[in-house]
Simulated scan of single mutants.
Amino acid sequence: MRVELLGVDIGGTTIHVGLVANNSIKKEAKILVDREAAAAITLQSLLNVIRQNLTGNVVAIGIGVPAVVDPDKGIVYDVQNIPSWKEIPLKSILEKEFNIPVFINNDANCFALGEFTYGQAKNYKNIIGLSLGTGIGMGIISNGMLYNGVLCGAGEIGMLSYKDSIIENYASSFFFTEHYNATAKDLADEARNGDKIALQAFNEYGSHLGEAIKNILYLFAPQAIILGGSISKAYPFFKEKMLESVQGFAYQKQIENLIIEVSQTNGSALLGAASLCLQKTNNNALN
């Protein structure tokens, strides 16, 4: 019998489900998230999409949620994209429904874990996964283990003070909407056509992101930083200024071999959610 895991990534606009076996996603499905729906309705939608993709070979379910999470009790609090989910005992609900173990963590942690387990960071013990999108999410792998902190709250780099505000307002999509009145995607499209204003926007963004990365280097001294999220697709437009800022780091020896790369792994967050099961069970048969 082929042993399988089910990974679930609850994102900004979708719930993404993937069947994971032999280190890859064998089958996947997406459904839209209705921000205005009642908690019970969204929960039922989640149950339905899991049920539709569950096989008899699935031995555990791993879920990444953009929220404060109690990973032991499996309770999610104040889910960002589902306002009605204020305090949901998701683990107990799903385990009662499907009668298999369920493991839950923050979505940024799942991205980092996916890169560490399956992606470019698998040869390093100390890595950071940095998801650049509506916000800036960060997951920490320290000495080969996912570091959660209290209620999976470690890694909230976006909340640190920066300039007149916080890092998130300069190193996520908020920067483009606030300073250029446009989305990162639209500006990336214009930058591909050589638009000078769009290129300037990404130059400025890269400088701010580089400053954020310097903070990460001072705090965690990782071997590798893997970038993901929608904004990472525009990496060629902000790479130069980002690296220029990073070179201002005080301890040059520390960053001589630092790796900063954009994720090339399909479904890192899904794979990372599935990897929660591996970390908890330590069952080599799941690999």
Rank of each mutant, 00 (worst) to 15 (best):
25 I>V: 12
74 G>Y: 10
81 N>F: 09
81 N>G: 00
51 R>D: 14
14 T>P: 00
28 E>M: 02
89 P>G: 11
46 L>N: 04
105 N>E: 15
15 I>M: 11
116 F>Q: 05
72 D>H: 10
49 V>T: 12
24 S>Q: 15
38 A>H: 13
46 L>K: 02
28 E>T: 03
25 I>Y: 07
94 L>D: 05
33 V>R: 04
69 V>C: 03
17 V>K: 08
102 V>C: 13
23 N>V: 00
69 V>Y: 12
112 A>E: 06
59 V>I: 14
68 V>D: 04
66 P>F: 00
29 A>R: 13
99 N>G: 07
88 I>G: 11
22 N>C: 10
69 V>M: 11
47 L>Q: 15
106 N>G: 11
72 D>T: 08
49 V>D: 03
95 E>F: 08
25 I>H: 07
39 A>I: 04
90 L>H: 07
30 K>L: 12
66 P>I: 01
82 I>S: 01
89 P>S: 12
70 D>A: 10
14 T>I: 05
90 L>I: 06
70 D>M: 09
90 L>V: 01
28 E>N: 06
104 I>Y: 10
53 N>A: 06
113 L>V: 00
70 D>E: 06
90 L>A: 08
85 W>R: 08
80 Q>W: 07
111 F>C: 05
94 L>A: 01
23 N>G: 02
104 I>S: 04
93 I>P: 07
103 F>P: 02
69 V>D: 03
68 V>L: 14
54 L>M: 11
55 T>G: 08
27 K>S: 15
21 A>P: 02
26 K>L: 15
77 Y>N: 01
68 V>A: 14
88 I>Y: 01
61 I>A: 14
56 G>S: 14
51 R>S: 15
116 F>E: 02
111 F>I: 09
85 W>I: 09
114 G>F: 03
105 N>L: 06
14 T>K: 14
55 T>Q: 03
113 L>G: 10
72 D>F: 10
93 I>D: 06
65 V>D: 00
